[in-house]
């Protein structure tokens, strides 16, 4: 089947019900997207489908209906996405395992809701777990990224 990932078309020979997460990691070698729980309870595997955050562990390959963007395609080292820039400046990551999912969730969230309230930030991000407890820095970085995007 054909998938468009990070602006490139890929042909993959996989079972219809293979989760997109495995297609990305095992077939396309894009290891930035992480496996956490496999049941949509942690957010580590978050990617975008046509700009909307989706849990790639929940999405069967045959149900992919739109362009996929992973953390590898969100920005480039030379031109970071505003969320990535805010993440680096705020030094959000501790172990980092959940961070690509966190960043993808935030990028989609701010795209839909550029001026979120603190309550909305908490509601949007409560499905993305961080075992290091980096939540205060995650919140701070989201506010910073929202400011950057508003100013851009």
């Amino acid at each position: 089947m054909k998938l468009r990932v990070n602006g490139k078309d890929h042909h993959v020979d996989v079972e219809d019900d293979m989760p997109l997460l495995w297609v990305l990691r095992d077939e396309l070698g894009l290891m930035g997207t992480k496996y956490g729980c496999g049941i949509a309870q942690c957010g580590a595997c978050t990617v975008h489908m046509d700009g909307i955050a989706v849990r790639s562990c929940q999405l069967a390959a045959a149900d992919v209906d739109g362009d996929i963007t992973t953390i590898e395609g969100l920005g480039t080292p030379e031109s970071l996405h505003a969320v990535q820039e805010a993440w680096v400046e705020t030094q959000v990551a501790q172990c980092g395992y959940c961070q690509s999912g966190q960043i993808m969730q935030v990028a989609s969230f701010l795209d839909m809701n550029p001026e979120p309230t603190d309550d909305q930030i908490d509601a949007a991000m409560s499905g993305n777990l961080c075992r290091c407890g980096a939540y205060p820095r995650i919140r701070a970085a989201i506010r910073s990224a929202a400011g950057k995007m508003a100013a851009a």
């Binding site: 929940q58 149900d63 839909m112 991000m125 499905g127």
Partner: peptide, 16 residues
């Protein structure tokens, strides 16, 4: 869930 996290982020549309 458009204001925060869309329902379909996890409850993805499943045709299969």
């Amino acid at each position: 869930g458009a204001e925060t996290i869309p329902c379909r982020t996890c409850h993805v549309t499943n045709e299969t």
